[in-house]
């Protein structure tokens, strides 16, 4: 089991193997399953991601039962079709794919948690535009997910990936960093550049709190995935251009952990502080749950 990103990068460089290959080997060894079975499981995850990206943006889109989120991936699709995006079609398509996925999640549809359900749109946001821009094969896309998982596992075991423990930086921040590292590998960058992209992407989202309105994975979670996906892309571009974060990836994970530990409880997925605590957020909570939410012993 790789204990740090430094160890992962050093192993990849001495063995002249991509990080995706190292983590596939580790999984074969630890699970005692065959390469074919492991590969097929990851390909299944890819299929679920593709279905959610499609479902959220086609027709009228999907809408959550609370009415707080839904239909905005469709708005983005139509906006792109008009051809006047400010940040370019690929960037807005990444946003669309991220939002489509999280709208499906909020509507209690089927998603693949990457690494969590709250951050489920970030990796698809990155991956499906790279598929078009880099003409990725399915095999390369599956590899992207393995690379992302290698970095994610180090975050999960050294820090945290739950909003209730470390805030949104632990969820969307981790997903963005994983996506940045995987984007670099699939674009032909070095393992060292993957680590730089990871460090840049995570540094950019340090301190991000988890403040969901009414405690629901809707506001602001859906749009936070748009920033996760685009953060991953800009970090990958910076790393591929040769930029360095200067503070190495493992230190950034350590910073994320200590920030998470110092974060007050009201900003860690309790639906109390931040946007959840605004007059509008509180009014939404009252409208959705009424008095049921404050009942202490609810026998239903």
């Amino acid at each position: 089991m790789y204990k740090s990103i430094a160890e992962l990068v050093a192993t990849a460089e001495t063995q002249h193997q991509p990080i995706s290959e190292l983590i596939i080997q580790q999984e074969i060894e630890s699970s005692q399953m065959s390469r074919e079975v492991i590969w097929a499981m990851m390909a299944k995850n890819l299929e679920v991601m593709r279905a959610a990206v499609k479902r959220g943006a086609e027709g009228e889109g999907v809408h959550s039962t609370t009415g707080l989120t839904g239909g905005e991936a469709v708005k983005l699709r139509k906006y792109r079709a008009a051809g006047h995006t400010l940040s370019g079609d690929a960037m807005v398509e990444a946003i669309q794919n991220a939002i489509a996925t999280n709208e499906v999640n909020a509507a209690m549809g089927v998603v693949c948690a990457t690494p969590t359900a709250g951050s489920t749109g970030t990796l698809p946001g990155v991956l499906f535009i790279l598929e078009k821009r880099l003409h990725l094969t399915e095999d390369q896309m599956v590899r992207f997910l393995f690379t992302a998982s290698a970095f994610g596992m180090i975050v999960a075991n050294n820090a945290m990936i739950a909003g209730a423990v470390g805030g949104c930086q632990a969820e969307v921040g981790s997903a963005a960093a994983m996506g940045a590292a995987a984007a670099v590998e699939v674009a032909g960058g070095t393992p060292e550049q993957s680590a730089e992209a990871f460090a840049i992407a995570m540094s950019n989202l340090l301190g991000l709190v988890c403040d969901p309105v009414a405690g629901l994975v809707e506001l602001p979670c859906v749009k936070r995935n748009a920033i996760g996906a685009t953060d991953a892309l800009i970090a990958a571009d910076m790393a591929l251009a040769g930029c360095s974060n200067k503070i190495p990836a493992d230190d950034v994970i350590g910073a994320m952990k200590s920030i998470g530990e110092e974060m007050p409880r009201s900003l860690r997925e309790t639906g109390i502080g931040g946007l959840a605590g605004t007059p509008t957020g509180q009014a939404m909570k009252q409208r959705i749950f009424g008095d049921a939410f404050v009942t202490e012993d609810n026998p239903e």
Binding site: M1, K44, N45, C112, A148, N157, A164
Partner: peptide, 22 residues
């Protein structure tokens, strides 16, 4: 380092009905 996450499929996955993995 804790060793709670042992498989890549705990990071990419599970496939699940939304809205929250935790």
């Amino acid at each position: 380092m804790a060793n709670n996450y042992k498989s890549v499929f705990e990071i990419i996955g599970p496939i699940m009905i939304g809205p929250s993995s935790s």
